Amino acid sequence: MRLVILGGVAAGTKAASRARRLDPEMEITVYQEEPEPSISECGLPYYLSGVVGERENLIARTPEQFADKDIEVLVRHRVESIDAAGKKLSVRDLRTDKVFDDTYDRLIIATGARAVLPPIPGAELEGVFKLRFLTDSDEIRRYIEERSPGKATIVGGGYIGLEVAENLCRLGMEVSLIEGEDRVALAYGPEVSENVEAELEANGVGVYTGEHVDEFTGEGRV
């Protein structure tokens, strides 16, 4: 039995580990497009400020550690097509750009989600970032270290946006948070949202609810 899993963060690696416990003889391969598998995504905002000091602290298990359990994890590999009838895959090694075929008996798709960049003019400018993967955190942190920005604007008042606001405040930035809905922290009730907004403002964050970004502007960068 050969099991192939597409996606190597939380769900994919847990599925691989569970499959290994159920069947010690199963052949298991995990394909992961990003450079690291099994990252602690909840810690990404805290890596920006240095609360999480070392990058390695965000990596729960490395490919080598999975290999010790006889689970093959191939990072920087993207599955580009699936032949469900023939149980075949076309895989691109992003390091060499070579494409090869693979086969499977069982397939699990655990690719998760991607950060959605709204179609806002200027989103391609330098200084506009998304935060979804560890490599995104690397890019933002490098920009902060090189540019020393004094101000930051966060678009979105959900979990990640709130945590990014918290951590950029720790760095001494002047932070604004823009949320299209009428309150932040929509996953909770209005009372919690009110308390969260009050805490943000008490820490110097400018909170703008019911507002939308029309355009990012700047000469090459915001």
Score class of each variant (00 low, 15 high):
168 L>I: 05
29 T>P: 00
155 V>M: 12
206 G>C: 05
104 Y>Q: 06
46 Y>E: 06
68 D>A: 15
68 D>S: 12
150 G>K: 13
93 D>H: 03
203 N>L: 08
121 P>V: 05
208 Y>M: 13
166 E>P: 01
139 E>H: 08
96 T>V: 11
80 E>G: 09
222 V>K: 01
66 F>G: 09
140 I>S: 02
95 R>A: 15
147 R>M: 08
87 K>P: 08
190 P>G: 11
88 K>M: 06
37 P>H: 07
168 L>N: 01
35 P>F: 04
39 I>K: 04
32 Q>P: 04
33 E>L: 08
33 E>H: 01
97 D>W: 02
163 E>F: 00
178 I>Q: 09
67 A>E: 15
113 A>S: 12
94 L>R: 11
161 G>K: 05
151 K>M: 11
134 L>I: 15
147 R>C: 07
189 G>P: 02
206 G>E: 15
51 V>K: 12
184 V>H: 00
66 F>M: 12
76 R>I: 02
64 E>I: 04
177 L>H: 00
109 I>A: 14
9 V>S: 13
100 F>G: 03
96 T>H: 05
63 P>I: 11
46 Y>C: 09
213 V>Q: 04
201 E>P: 06
150 G>N: 10
28 I>Y: 02
13 T>V: 11
73 V>S: 01
207 V>F: 04
139 E>S: 13
42 C>K: 07
214 D>W: 06
120 I>R: 05
71 I>G: 04
132 R>N: 15
199 E>C: 08
209 T>Q: 07
181 E>S: 14
164 V>E: 08
23 D>G: 07
89 L>A: 00
98 K>W: 09
120 I>S: 01
65 Q>L: 04
215 E>M: 09
50 G>D: 12
93 D>F: 00
100 F>H: 15
80 E>S: 14
109 I>T: 13
125 L>M: 10
29 T>F: 01
173 M>D: 04
16 A>F: 03
129 F>I: 07
74 L>I: 05
9 V>A: 08
123 A>R: 12
142 R>W: 03
212 H>F: 10
51 V>T: 15
109 I>V: 14
95 R>M: 14
124 E>A: 12
4 V>I: 15
222 V>W: 03
76 R>S: 13
19 A>T: 07
